[in-house]
């Protein structure tokens, strides 16, 4: 029988507790690192804009200490020719995962690297570009339509007639999805098709008296340099609340935008990257919705439309502009 008061027993217990076990733990830890190896990630971003940079920053921060090494960060500068050179570099380096930030980067890597897991983010209207494949996982840059409508209803009350202008070739899918959701949530979606930016303002003037709120979707036919300010001005003139997915549009006079927290999108991408890197052979995880949203409110527009802001100030992740 072992005497627990024996010195040797005590010494042995101390050695085991304070030296051997940590040593074993450290050994096993380092063995696992050596066995697995450090995973490398290459980041390609389409151009240098703040939103992309925020996402990249979030990703980098989230990867820190996660055995993920960010090998290169490429900037396509908005030029596809630039991408051709970069592709050669990436092919030579063979990273374990590629993070594509922006549509140009995403479409480029999708075509060039079918064997390497790809995560894309910050792609506006991603479904237009067929960004699908076994090696492709993505994070949408738009809040889901349902989230947008729920927030609109919760914040602004029951606006029955919700107007929207769209180009069916670009955002027809969003509208068909939105019709079902609108009905479920008690909205009457008044949709107006356009085929060119010239039609946008006349169409808006035509429906402006029939609607109680305007929903601005990211449609490149509808939202252009020429139309954006005019849309916001007409809506303001008629004291219509406007809902959109872009903080930039709120800055031009729209009432509220629901958009992802871009830094958190990077973090979300890093989490997906960890899963994919730690489990080689994992198929595509599909297109994820952004996990963290933020609201941006234009206080001047709110005042013009006649919305009391005190109720919103308690909301988390709310940005008041200006």
């Amino acid at each position: 029988m072992i005497n627990k008061n024996n010195k040797f027993y005590k010494l042995s217990k101390g050695v085991v507790t304070y030296y051997i076990l940590p040593l074993l733990l450290l050994t096993s830890f380092y063995i696992s690192i050596v066995t697995a190896g450090e995973k490398t990630v290459t980041i390609i971003q389409s151009q240098q804009i703040a939103a992309y940079n925020e996402a990249v920053k979030g990703f980098k921060e989230a990867c820190r200490g996660k055995n993920i090494a960010i090998k290169e960060i490429y900037d396509l500068k908005g030029d596809i020719e630039e991408g051709k050179k970069i592709v050669q570099d990436i092919k030579a380096n063979k990273p374990n995962l590629i993070l594509a930030v922006g549509v140009l980067a995403a479409t480029l890597v999708k075509e060039q690297f079918p064997e390497i897991p790809i995560i894309f983010c910050m792609v506006v209207n991603h479904y237009r570009f067929n960004l699908q494949g076994n090696n492709i996982t993505g994070i949408s840059v738009e809040a889901s339509v349902e989230d947008q409508f729920i927030i609109l209803r919760n914040l602004l009350g029951a606006y029955k007639n919700l107007g929207v202008i769209y180009d069916i070739t670009k955002t027809g899918k969003i509208i068909s999805e939105a019709e079902t959701i609108a009905k479920t949530l008690g909205f009457n979606l008044i949709k107006s098709e356009v085929t060119s930016e010239k039609e946008v303002i006349p169409v808006l003037e035509n429906i402006i008296k029939k609607i109680e709120a305007l929903w601005i979707i990211p449609d490149s036919t509808v939202i252009t340099k020429n139309t954006l300010e005019a849309i916001s001005k007409i809506a303001l003139d008629h004291h219509l609340p406007t809902l959109c997915t872009s903080e930039a549009i709120v800055k031009t006079g729209a009432l509220i935008s629901i958009s992802p927290d871009y830094t958190y999108t990077g973090l979300q991408a890093a989490q997906i990257a960890q899963i994919l890197l730690n489990n080689p052979g994992t198929p595509s995880m599909g297109i994820k919705n952004p996990e963290k949203l933020r609201l941006t409110l234009n206080t001047q527009t709110a005042e013009s439309v006649g919305i009391n802001l005190t109720a919103f100030q308690s909301y988390p992740n709310i940005i008041l502009y200006p």
Partner: peptide
Amino acid sequence: EKPAFAEEEFAAQILGEDETPKE
């Protein structure tokens, strides 16, 4: 001179920040 990629221009407009060149 070669124009910028249109979809990226649009993305910059939608996701744009203050430093995004207007035109």
